[in-house]
């Protein structure tokens, strides 16, 4: 079969051309949204378990003189993680207009922010582990499970972003007509960001209420 004119055919593949039409959501979009829905439910159960165990435990929380969690570092981490969604948005808009440089720069910026977040979390763990561990008591178990599970999600998100960055270095992987993968990874990253707010509230702020 013959292509519809050299330019389009050269720049895009079959799949890509189809995304050019401004009609409807793609299956990939729906798939990612459903995946995020089930993941969000998982986090909801996790945070629900935290509150359940906390209120079943009694008035003194965190128990055994662990003390209220330090706030400074988590707030810095929040300040690093939350804005990291912006470069993704900027990159996604860029690639829709075919600007690959915006895609690359935006993704790179997000990578830096996300990695900083993880590094900060590592230093936080290093401090906390001196006081209590996962096996100290139920508070320790919850703290490390919840923050660790979120950290794992950040890592997965970073892997996605890094993967996008790597593929985007190859010409033609993404373009004005082919950016579905960017959008899907972006959805995931925004989700990981938003969940952090819930965790910040649950783990760090709620014991002080």
């Amino acid at each position: 079969m013959t292509g519809h004119g050299g330019v389009v055919a050269a720049a895009t593949g079959a799949e890509a051309l189809s995304t050019e039409l401004p009609v409807g959501r793609s299956t990939g979009w729906w798939g990612m949204v459903m995946f995020v829905a089930t993941e969000a439910t998982l986090f909801a159960c996790l945070l629900g378990s935290y509150f359940y165990l906390r209120f079943q435990y009694g008035p003194q929380w965190p128990p055994n003189g662990i003390g209220d969690p330090e706030l400074l570092k988590p707030l810095v981490m929040t300040a690093v993680l939350l804005p990291s969604s912006l470069p993704v948005v900027w990159a996604e808009h860029g690639i829709r207009q075919g600007q690959r440089w915006r895609l690359r720069c935006g993704l790179a910026a997000t990578m830096v922010l996300g990695a900083t977040f993880l590094a900060l979390q590592a230093t936080e763990y290093a401090e906390k582990l001196k006081h209590f561990t996962m096996t100290t008591d139920v508070y320790g178990s919850l703290f490390y499970l919840i923050t660790g599970f979120h950290g794992l999600h950040v890592l997965v998100g970073l892997t996605m972003i890094g993967w996008l960055l790597a593929t985007s270095l190859r010409g033609g992987s993404f373009g004005a007509h082919r950016h579905e993968r960017v959008r899907n990874a972006a959805i995931y990253w925004h989700f990981v960001d938003l969940v952090w707010i819930a965790i910040l509230f649950t783990i760090y702020l709620s014991p002080r209420l």
């Binding site: 165990l53 079943q56 096996t135 008591d137 499970l145």
Partner: peptide, 19 residues
Amino acid sequence: FGTHFFDPAAGGNVLLWQH
């Protein structure tokens, strides 16, 4: 790994499993 989610001796709760 010795966590205590369901261990009442360390503040856990067996009912959490059932919930």
